[in-house]
Design a protein around this nucleic acid. Structure first.
Length: 219
DNA sequence: ATTTAGATCCTCT
DNA sequence: GAGGATCTAAATG
């Protein structure tokens, strides 16, 4: 994997994406997100926080009620498709489409621990070299900025793309404890669906969008 | 430590 | 026209 020309590692394959969003959201923790820039430089990060958007009955989902628009069209595509959308006038968010084609389920990738190409990520984020690694990709829009993910990558097939893909967790990167479960962030408009525990965080990470254990602060 | 306001523009009603 | 799967800096307790 370090040999020249062998920079694209083993990938997550189609059938692994063809599961329900809740299952995939858990399974993606510890997985590597990989991005090749136009320059050829490769960025990698370990996914540590996800959210499941579980389909047409999920009020918090862009596909609620079977809504199908130009924006969310990618949610109805094959499992393993990227769904990248623009929000709040300035931010992008990246999802992995899953389940069966036509069933609009997706996993929002909310945070990653930078592994490779960290200096480039800092540049992309407009951060100084002194800023903490924890601020690079802890949050869905920060992650997109750090990995240069924007509209251009919407609807890309993560199974075949040489610009954006996922690599399975190795033993050393797989979480060793069960994920922390919380309500999803920023979906207060979704009524009862806002309370469902569909956000998943690696309990041992330092790189989530908010501390997994806000209580304890010793040491 | 927690809260607030402002930025900013695309998407859908 | 309204509001959003957010982030940051600044203000406040």
């Amino acid at each position: 994997m370090s040999a020249i020309g062998v920079d694209v590692g083993v990938r997550v394959i189609r059938r692994d994406f063809a599961r329900d969003a809740q299952t995939l959201a858990v399974d993606l923790l510890g997985t590597t997100l990989a991005r090749r820039l136009a320059s050829g430089l490769i960025l990698r990060g370990r996914i540590v926080e996800t959210e499941a958007y579980i389909g047409v009955r999920d009020r918090a989902s862009h596909a609620f009620g079977g809504r199908r628009t130009p924006r969310n069209e990618a949610m109805y595509a094959k499992p393993g498709t990227a769904y990248v959308y623009f929000t709040y006038g300035m931010h992008f968010c990246f999802n992995v489409v899953c389940a069966a084609e036509g069933d609009p389920q997706a996993v929002l990738i909310r945070a990653a621990e930078p592994l490779e190409g960290i200096e480039e990520m800092r540049d992309l984020r407009g951060m100084g070299a002194a800023a903490s690694d924890r601020l690079i990709a802890s949050g869905p829009a920060r992650l997109c900025q750090a990995f240069a993910i924007d509209r251009e990558l919407n609807a890309v097939d993560l199974v075949t793309s040489d610009r954006l893909w996922l690599e399975p967790a190795a033993r050393s990167t797989r979480p060793t404890r069960r994920p922390l479960r919380t309500p999803r962030i920023g979906v207060d408009y979704a009524g009862a669906w806002a309370k469902r525990l569909l956000r998943f965080v690696d309990p041992e990470t330092q790189h989530a969008s908010r501390s997994p254990r806000p209580r304890t602060k010793r040491k």
